[in-house]
Design a protein around this nucleic acid. Structure first.
Length: 950
RNA sequence: AGGACUAUAGCUCAGUUGGUUAGAGCGCUACCUUGACAUGGUAGAGGUCGGCAGUUCGAAUCUGCCUAGUCCUACCA
């Protein structure tokens, strides 16, 4: 075994070994347990969120595998429509100066596939570095042939079930990407804007209550007036009631539009008069539907002004009404240029009453960052309400459970108010919609052109497939069963579906989780016809944030790359990574400065195990995680501790009799104690993992291994192993305990830290009589109640108390740890004497004692520094060692503490209400504590008196 | 506007059904190259558990209000 712990040296080889031996493949026996990985973008790279979630999934999978379940961890990647297409577009633009339109659909798609092949392996390589025990043999991609079939089938079935429809609707249009996007892909933030108050002249000589021949509307988007179809007021608004049914004449355009009444209008806001533009605003659209207003679209796909409006009735059918040409001055102008022009013209005409500052929520496309434009287009939609109902029920009745529970409220509130889902995208990279159009615009849905022709007896008329592709989330909604071979009812589906747990972030509960539930429950049925859920538990993780609690993002330059934490990175490389190739180069200086401040020497190589253990230890529920380098450093040290402990064990046990071949065995108190403590640790770790408390599991492992096994047990083993008079049975007992407990602890820790546990286990296995090839296939330790030894635990606490009492005196009195000191025991009970006799070797070694002396009752003790163990006094003679004042000060400090306690206990017990009402058990406990504190105080008081007397 | 979450040691976080002297890691102080480990050891210091009120014999824990912060959803023409 190498002298120092070097994660790099051990990690890669074991992963290769596991993978080469197909240890990640489901065993096919035992109870099935399955997890699907949330598919990362195929061209993406692993970030801390992935590392976190994948660590948790791997921990669960390794645990279940060791518990002899038939585990499947399904792996794969997502084609990530918009993100990938944009990336390749940028790349082609940068490298060849071409747009995708220059290339054409087919050639451009070739480029995307090329890029996918080139960079697609990146994320899977990174997954391997993390130790993720996914089944690579079943790796899938959302656009591989089989998955394509699943997507097409899902579309067709939903269509045939009446849950997919096509229609002209107002959708969120991205004027840069030239595609519709779903509500979820629009992010709204407060932005500074204006509220323009515009005069709309009343037609036919009508006047307002105060005699004006115009009304004033307030708007944040003056340019949309070109598409106004009405002005709305509140039905109870006394200012305008009499105008309802009359008309106004639209300035600059001249269109006569009605004044209508609708209680959507807020009388308090603006002027109480709202211009209604059904083709360019979602609320206006709804109002247009209610009042049968024409939808007058005045914008093209670039959000520039059309020459002639496109007008539709409420059914989306084109009509000729209101299709007079738009004034030439505005034709072809971009929406913002048009705004300026219209405002200027209104001003000139004296029809602009005022301009107010106004903050508004600007809806922006989450990919392009541009303000999206509500635009009337033909799109495909999923009717979500019928799908949502069973999906809600499944969570209500517990077939699907959120961990932590609170997330179900988020889910419910969204699902109960769900809107239809626009699934068509005007992109090229994605699943082509399986619909064909004839020249008349009639469409036919089917698996292929041939199928469509045959089914609808179309002969050889012209047919053209829909150009659009499906929203990426449509295909990822099928992920749990699409990866297992659906629409065929494969053996894998029968065995591993529904999956057991989904591990994901709250940010995609709507995007993905909810839709997965809806799609799966509609498409996947049990044999009895009831709906299958995609997974039984949803473990929702928090977000990993930087050391300041800020979200990690490339533009902020605060991203931590998990691979850098594993391998380490120099400051220069880190700076280059964070400030190179930036979208906003002006931020580089600031990022440079911050990075130098936080990582003056770059980052050390902490190794995968330290990273994984840290992520687990931070995984408490219901909160985000500020990633603190201190934690991973501490856990790297923990790995080092394990390494060195193993080194000690091997040094003392290799080529020795460790009882693996039988033979008489005698166990010391320390042996019995550590075995007992191991049981309790196993119990804690198991119950923590069962309840998804990875932090508790990590804590239990850490404190057992470091604070009990290393700090105490290894030290307690030394007096036995180094005792020349120790019997073979004693040596065998201690060696056996050393190796067995370490071996169990390694298995216990393996799901969290796969590499170091494997490396050490390989060295240890012959010493415990194991022959398995890998720790990952060994049985997970189980709690054995019969190995819990209360007596050993309490006896060992006595030993620790004595040792710690002496160490305290040493520490506080400044006695060199190198100096052996004599120790006297006074006022002890017979049980104390027994313990002393049985364990003096431990005391002498660990407290560095010169001698131990038992004083019988009445025997005079020399003047000493005192520590108390129960009622027994542990005495370090002062002669030549201890200064009188220092000991007095030490005693006074102890006494002060005791006095405080006594006062509190007395207060409590003096309160009749407490004594009368509290359970007798609690009262007795308080009494006992009081008695103990009083006795201790009395003893120390006597000591003080004695010392003061000299 | 509605909702969720968070507030505990200098920092990052635990604290299960109300009953311990409120814990851990990092950091800090002093001492120590003792035959696994200085990525270490020993001994310490450090908290009126965000504030106020209430329930209770008893509150970090339950209830209400308030303050501060984070986030989500809807939406203001």
């Amino acid at each position: 075994m190498d002298k120092t712990y070097n994660p790099h040296a051990i990690e890669q080889q074991w992963y290769q070994h596991w993978e080469a031996n197909s240890y990640f493949t489901p065993s096919g026996t035992g109870k099935p347990y399955s997890i699907v990985i949330p598919p990362p973008n195929v061209t993406g790279s692993l970030h801390m969120g992935h590392a976190f979630q994948d660590t948790i999934m791997d921990t669960l999978i390794r645990l279940k595998r060791m518990q002899q379940h038939d585990t499947l961890w399904q792996v794969g990647t997502d084609h990530a429509g918009i993100a990938t297409q944009m990336l390749v577009e940028r790349k082609v633009q940068a490298e060849e100066g071409l747009t995708r339109h220059d290339l054409g659909r087919e050639k451009f798609l070739d480029k995307v596939w090329e890029w996918k092949e080139e960079s697609g392996g990146n994320i899977t390589r990174q997954l391997r570095r993390l130790g993720a025990s996914v089944d690579w043999d079943r790796e899938r991609f959302t656009m591989d042939d089989g998955f394509y079939e699943a997507v097409q089938e899902a579309f067709i079935r939903l269509y045939e079930d009446g849950l997919i429809y096509r229609g002209k609707r107002l959708v969120n249009w991205d004027p840069k990407l030239h595609t519709a996007i779903s509500d979820l892909e629009v992010v709204s933030e407060d932005e500074a804007g204006h509220l323009w108050h515009m005069r709309y002249p009343l037609a036919d000589g009508a006047t307002t209550a105060n005699g004006d021949n115009f009304i004033v509307v307030a708007t944040t988007r003056p340019e949309t007036m070109l598409g106004d179809a009405a002005v709305a007021v509140h039905p109870e608004d006394e200012r305008y009631q009499h105008l309802v049914g009359k008309f106004v004449e639209l300035p600059l355009v001249g269109r006569r539009i009605p004044v209508i009444a609708d209680d959507y209008v807020d009388q308090e806001f603006g002027t109480g008069c709202v211009k209604i533009t059904p083709a360019h605003d979602f609320n206006d659209y709804a109002m247009g539907q209610r009042h049968a207003l024409a939808m007058i679209n005045v914008l093209d796909q670039d959000a520039a002004i059309l020459a002639t409006p496109e007008v539709y009735n409420t059914d989306g059918m084109p009509v000729t009404e209101h299709n007079e040409a738009i004034p030439a001055a505005y034709q072809g102008l971009d929406r913002y240029q048009a705004r300026d022009a219209i405002v200027a013209d209104l001003q000139q005409a004296g029809q602009l009453e005022k301009i107010e500052d106004h903050t508004l929520k600007a809806p922006r496309g989450d990919r392009s960052g541009l303000v999206i434009e509500p635009l009337l287009t033909d799109q495909w939609f999923v009717s979500t309400k019928p799908l949502a109902e069973p999906a809600i029920a499944a969570v209500e009745d517990g077939r699907i459970e959120f961990v932590p529970k609170q997330w179900q409220n988020t889910y419910f509130s969204w699902m109960r108010d769900i809107q239809d889902w626009c699934i068509s995208r005007q992109l090229w990279w994605g699943h082509r919609i399986p619909a064909w159009y004839d020249d008349a615009g009639q469409f036919y849905v089917g698996r292929s052109e041939a199928e469509v022709r045959a089914k609808h007896q179309l002969g050889d008329i012209n047919l053209r497939q829909d150009d659009d592709v499906l929203d990426t989330w449509f295909s990822s909604g099928l992920w749990t069963f699409g990866t297992m071979g659906w629409p065929d009812m494969t053996e894998a589906l029968k065995r591993y579906h529904p999956t057991d747990v989904l591990v994901t972030g709250f940010d995609i509960i709507f995007f993905w989780v909810a839709r997965m539930i809806m799609m799966t429950m509609h498409l996947m049925k049990h044999e009895d016809g009831s709906a299958q859920v995609p997974f039984k538990t949803i473990y929702v993780t928090g977000l990993i944030r930087d050391e300041n609690g800020d979200k990690m993002s490339k533009s902020k330059g605060n991203v931590l790359d998990p691979l850098d934490l594993i391998d380490g990175i120099s400051l220069d490389d880190l700076l280059a990574k964070r400030t190179g190739n930036m979208m906003q180069p002006q931020l580089a200086k600031k990022i440079d400065k911050q990075t130098r401040k936080h990582f003056p020497e770059g980052m050390a190589a902490y190794g995968t195990d330290a990273l994984r253990f840290t992520l687990c230890s931070l995984a408490s529920t219901g909160r985000d995680i500020k990633f603190d380098l201190g934690r991973i450093e501490g856990n790297r040290n923990f790995c080092n501790k394990i390494w060195n402990a193993a080194s000690y064990v091997l040094m003392n046990c290799e080529d020795q009799d460790c009882g693996q071949h039988g033979g008489e065995v005698e166990l010391t108190l320390a042996d019995k104690w550590i075995v007992s403590r191991l049981q309790r640790t196993q119990q804690k770790v198991l119950s923590a993992l069962d309840s998804y408390r990875f932090d508790h599991a990590a804590e239990a492992l850490y404190s057992f291994i470091w604070n009990e096994y290393c700090a105490w047990y290894l030290e307690l083993s030394k007096p036995v192993l180094w005792d020349e008079n120790a019997s073979a049975a004693q040596l065998r007992g201690t060696r056996r305990t050393l190796v067995q407990v370490l071996e169990s602890a390694l298995r216990l820790a393996h799901p969290l830290m796969p590499y170091i546990t494997e490396e050490i286990w390989q060295k240890l296995k012959p010493l415990v009589g194991q022959t398995g090839d890998s720790i990952m296939l060994q049985a997970y330790p189980e709690f054995a109640a019969d190995k819990v030894d209360e007596q050993a635990e309490s006896d060992l606490n006595w030993v620790r108390d004595v040792i710690e009492g002496v160490r305290n005196i040493r520490g506080e009195m400044g006695i060199s740890p190198a100096k052996p000191i004599p120790l006297l025991f006074s006022k002890g009970k017979p049980s104390d004497q027994n313990k002393l006799q049985a364990n003096s070797q431990f005391l002498i070694k660990l407290a560095k004692l010169e001698s131990v002396t038992w004083l019988e009752a009445g025997e005079e003790a020399p003047l000493s520094a005192t520590a108390l163990v129960g009622e027994m006094e542990v005495l370090v003679p002062m002669a030549g060692l201890i200064d009188k004042d220092a000991e007095l000060a030490r005693l006074q400090k102890e006494l002060a503490k005791l006095t405080g306690e006594i006062k509190r206990f007395n207060g409590k017990l003096g309160n009749a209400k407490f004594v009368d009402n509290a359970p007798a058990e609690v009262v007795d406990k308080e009494r006992a504590k009081l008695a103990e504190a009083e006795a201790a105080a009395a003893t120390l008081q006597q000591q003080v008196a004695k010392i003061e007397a000299i």
